Simulated scan of single mutants.
Amino acid sequence: MVTAPASLARSSWFARPAARDWTCPPAPRDVAAFHRTLPGHAATPLVELPSLAAELGARRVFVKDESARLGLPAFKILGASWGVHRALCDRLGLAPGGTSLADLRSARPDVRLVTATDGNHGRAVAAMARLLGLAAEVCVPHGVHPEAVAAIKAEGAAVTEIPASYDEAVRAAADAAAVDPSALLVQDTAWPGYERVPQWIVEGYSTLFSEIDEQLAEVGAAPAGLVAIPVGVGSLAQAAVTHYRSGQSAPTLLSVEPDAAPCVLASLHQDRPLTVRTRPTTMAGLNCATPSTLAWPVLRAGLDAAVAVTDASAARAAHDLARLGVAAGPCGAASLAGARAALAPDRRPLLAAGHGETAVLLATEGRAANPA
């Protein structure tokens, strides 16, 4: 991994339409079935916003509202729940397909879940630990909002505050897990030698995209022609690429990052994974310096557009979504800010033809959440 030159980190746009032709195998079919067994499961809303369609020059625009997913204010529980389930089954030698959460609770595993987070992933892991009667430790970097820290503690997890960046918090969590035989690291980014659990977490996100397909069909909309995805280390975007590049349609998949931390965008420009020097941003959950090693090959092959947006544009998008009845924080609103930037007249010709038919914006977390 090398550090990006400042000129690359500042570049705000990337497009490679040929990525739409890349294909890959789909996510496992049993993920959505597992999620349906979780307490309080329900599909999150897909909200149609005609005024945004008029503004963006699309026939129909939908926002996937993840502000209340399984009782938590973000999509992260989809990945954390499947990742924890698979990892515990693996640790205990149980078959994932035939093992319920009740089975795992009854097994009373001597396991302590460990992770690092900017907010929502850690809270999701802590919630799974509470559900299963397990201990959890969550490392949080400098800059995480006190309310996000309090929410993690309210789930019953121990919080270790790391006075450094997100990447350093990840290292601290990995180090803590390495010296404790009972620890199970459940991290949503990958590095060489640590990829199985992150892959399971990515698989967990597939439920979100299956829901979108079903919901679009229910309202008679065309399949998604543009999907805008907020990006930190790239795991959700990896799930999006896996879903849409293994299906019948080939929409434009647009990654959206803060201009203060555009690690995927800079890597796409250089055609190799880079570490960027980050700055503070209100999109705290996207403030990541390095793409996941698991996500990068998939994003390089199948992500056909990427954009970096400012804090001001994300704030405007959050305000506009709130006015339309969708409560999104800066990270969730980044998808609208990114779509606005990508649909500029000089950029539209590089997008899939269907982008003018149906656009889907992922509002990945609620307004009160510190996204992660």
Rank of each mutant, 00 (worst) to 15 (best):
R348D: 04
V114G: 01
P251V: 08
V298K: 10
D118F: 05
R171Q: 14
P198A: 08
L274N: 06
R279S: 14
A314F: 03
A164T: 08
V61C: 03
A33E: 15
A334S: 15
A317M: 07
P50R: 04
P26C: 04
A178Y: 05
P280L: 06
D30L: 11
L294S: 11
G122K: 06
D90A: 15
S7F: 13
V276Q: 05
D346G: 07
T310K: 00
L216S: 01
A164F: 10
R108H: 15
D271Q: 15
V84S: 05
P181R: 08
T242H: 10
L8F: 06
A9M: 09
S81A: 15
A327P: 06
S106P: 02
A177R: 02
G79T: 08
A240Q: 09
M1E: 06
V231L: 04
S11F: 08
G332N: 08
P273D: 07
W82R: 13
P297I: 07
V309L: 05
L184T: 00
R69L: 04
R20Q: 08
F14H: 13
A305L: 08
G332K: 04
P96F: 05
A136C: 14
L78K: 10
L294W: 04
R112C: 11
L185W: 03
E137D: 11
W296E: 04
F209H: 03
A301W: 09
A240E: 06
R245D: 05
R112E: 12
G193Q: 06
D118L: 15
C139E: 13
A148K: 00
A312K: 11
A154R: 15
A305Q: 10
R323H: 15
S100I: 07
W82D: 11
L132N: 00
E365Y: 06
R272Y: 03
G57E: 09
A359H: 02
E357S: 15
S255T: 14
A53L: 04
S292Y: 01
G71A: 10
A295E: 03
L321M: 02
T23Y: 10
T275K: 11
R245Y: 12
P45W: 01
A19L: 05
I77F: 07
H319Q: 14
E155K: 13
A9F: 01
T207F: 00
A150R: 15
S165G: 01
A54Y: 08
G79Y: 01
L104P: 03
P291Q: 03
Y194F: 15
